[in-house]
Deep mutational scan, measured.
Amino acid sequence: QIFVKTLTGKTITLEVEPSDTIENVKAKIQDKEGIPPDQQRLIFAGKQLEDGRTLSDYNIQKESTLHLVL
C-alpha cells in the first residue's frame, strides 16, 4: 500500500502493486475521493509523475507517500 497526502492534509491509503501505472493510481484516487484523474497531479520526491509510467519506474515502494496537487 502507499499513502497519498492531499493539500488539505488528508491522507488516503491505496492498495497498489509496483506494476501499477500512475494512471491506474489516479483512477483509484477517483474511486475513493471522486476527483477526476485529469485534475490530479501526483508528486513524489519533488517530481511530477507521468501517467504512462509505473510506480516501480519511480522507485515508489510500499509505505511511500505521494503528494496530490489539484
Rank of each mutant, 00 (worst) to 15 (best):
I2Y: 05
I2Q: 01
I2S: 01
F3L: 06
F3E: 03
K5R: 13
T6K: 05
T6F: 15
T8R: 10
T8W: 15
G9S: 04
G9E: 04
G9F: 04
G9L: 04
K10V: 09
T11Y: 09
T11W: 08
I12N: 01
I12T: 03
I12F: 12
I12S: 02
T13M: 10
L14T: 01
L14A: 02
E15P: 06
V16H: 05
E17S: 11
E17Q: 10
P18E: 10
P18C: 10
P18V: 10
D20I: 05
T21E: 03
T21A: 05
E23H: 11
E23R: 14
N24P: 00
N24F: 14
K26C: 02
K26A: 02
K28M: 14
I29F: 03
I29A: 02
Q30T: 10
D31Q: 15
K32F: 08
G34V: 02
I35T: 07
I35C: 06
P36E: 07
P36N: 07
P36D: 07
P36L: 07
P36F: 06
P37E: 07
P37G: 07
Q39M: 12
Q39P: 02
Q39W: 10
Q40G: 03
Q40T: 05
Q40M: 15
Q40S: 04
Q40P: 01
Q40L: 06
Q40I: 11
R41Q: 12
L42D: 00
L42C: 01
L42T: 00
F44E: 01
F44K: 03
A45M: 14
A45F: 09
A45S: 09
G46Q: 05
G46Y: 05
G46N: 07
K47P: 01
K47R: 12
Q48S: 10
Q48D: 12
L49S: 00
L49C: 05
E50P: 03
E50L: 09
E50S: 07
D51E: 09
D51L: 06
D51Q: 05
D51M: 05
G52P: 07
G52Q: 11
G52W: 13
G52E: 10
R53P: 05
R53M: 12
S56I: 08
S56P: 03
N59S: 08
Q61V: 12
Q61L: 11
S64L: 04
T65I: 15
T65S: 05
T65A: 04
T65K: 05
T65G: 03
L66V: 09
L66T: 02
L66Y: 02
H67A: 07
L68T: 02
L68G: 01
L68M: 08
V69M: 12
V69Y: 13
L70W: 10
L70F: 11
L70T: 10
